[in-house]
């Protein structure tokens, strides 16, 4: 039986206009990836400045320069609907690669911020 689990992966952006590449590994028991959502400790910076590339199992789901704001959900969205629906993605080797780029934007002043990727998964129930 598959049970829903949420995984969180963080990266730190410490310099303006920099690119941060991070690779994360999912548990082997995860059988499906259903959705993703991006959040931050400084939402405005992620919203206005962020772009990212997202790969799962070496397959590109969002290309470079895809704006983070398109993968964020405000508090007006029902909690159960906040994830960007990817369908049922086979995690394969379970490797998720994020290439995050901070871009200059006139509305914000840079300060270091955290970017969190939440992954909505289905895990094999081992009980």
């Amino acid at each position: 039986m598959l049970k829903p689990v949420k995984k969180r992966f963080d990266l730190q952006v410490v310099a303006a206009k920099s690119t941060v590449t991070q690779t994360y590994e999912l548990d082997k028991a995860i059988k499906n990836i259903k959705g993703v959502v991006f959040t931050s400790d400084k939402d405005d910076l992620l919203y206005y400045r962020g772009t990212q590339k997202l790969e799962i199992n070496k397959e590109e789901y969002f290309p470079e320069n895809y704006e983070s704001k398109l993968l964020m959900s405000g508090i007006n969205v029902e909690p159960k609907k906040r994830y960007y629906d990817l369908g049922n993605v086979n995690p394969g080797n379970g490797i998720i690669k994020v290439v995050f780029t901070d871009n200059e934007d006139g509305r914000t002043a840079f300060v270091p911020y955290r970017v969190s990727l939440y992954v909505d998964c289905e895990m094999e129930d081992q009980l």
């Binding site: 405005d44 992620l46 704001k69 398109l70 959900s73 405000g74 007006n76 960007y84």
Partner: peptide, 10 residues
């Protein structure tokens, strides 16, 4: 409310 707090899904 700001776009980054209250925006609905894109």
């Amino acid at each position: 409310p700001q776009p980054f707090t209250h925006e609905i899904k894109s």
